[in-house]
């Protein structure tokens, strides 16, 4: 169900992108939709960066990609994150496994302040995904568990007048429903911070 939902969401964004890229020779429907988005003041924003996410009493780097539709102060989109490098530890002694995690979900945001150089946002993401212990030698997954998480965060973008901006976020993630040996939801819950680049074609007026 989650997969379908995210797939549909992404297809919709695909369509938005195509609509925005359409040139003057493209026929009516796409153009109409593009005009519709412009008329309604709907734009889009994308974020690519790294989260430093809580992992077993330390921070682990994970790649993060967000894409959202924006309308005035609001944004709604999807987010995807994947743990990089992978934590290695004894799971079933004496075997060592590597932890992999991937999550995806929806993200809702609101701009709370706007200035010449800095914009501030509050976002909340709800994510579904899977965490696995992987055998480093065979690359096979040994144990896997579905997990869910909620991530409220505060975001600041610097130099908001350009479409490419520096973005930094601080937030808290609460993971739940994780059932893996040697780890639990609390091991991945806590404060996180992230840094990345944001593409903002939001039709916002400065």
């Amino acid at each position: 169900m989650h997969k379908c939902y995210l797939g549909l969401l992404l297809c919709f964004f695909q369509y938005v992108i195509v609509a925005q890229q359409a040139d003057s020779l493209t026929q009516s429907k796409t153009n109409n939709f593009s005009h519709f988005l412009k008329n309604k003041n709907i734009g889009w924003a994308g974020f690519a960066g790294f989260d430093m996410t809580p992992t077993m009493e330390s921070f682990q780097k994970q790649i993060r990609l967000d894409i959202s539709l924006t309308h005035e102060r609001l944004s709604l989109g999807m987010t995807y994150s994947s743990l990089l490098g992978g934590l290695k530890q004894y799971v079933i002694f004496p075997s060592t496994y590597r932890l992999n995690a991937q999550h995806g979900g929806i993200i809702l945001g609101i701009r709370i302040f706007q200035s010449k150089w800095i914009n501030g946002y509050i976002n909340t993401a709800y994510q579904w995904g899977q965490m696995v212990w992987e055998d480093p030698a065979s690359k096979e997954y040994v144990f896997s568990s579905k997990s869910e998480g909620i991530k409220p965060e505060f975001e600041i973008t610097i130099y908001p007048k350009f479409w490419l901006q520096l973005s930094t976020k601080v937030g808290y993630q609460q993971i739940s429903k994780l059932e893996l040996p040697q780890v639990n939801s609390a091991d991945f819950s806590g404060f996180f911070y992230s840094l990345g680049l944001k593409i903002n074609l939001s039709n916002e007026k400065y």
Partner: peptide
């Protein structure tokens, strides 16, 4: 050229739920 980036994102979103052990 941004379209392939989003195709990649679409692919990525489908990867994470396909393991049933």
């Amino acid at each position: 050229n941004i379209k392939p980036f989003f195709l990649l994102l679409l692919f990525g979103s489908c990867v994470f739920t396909n393991e049933n052990l």
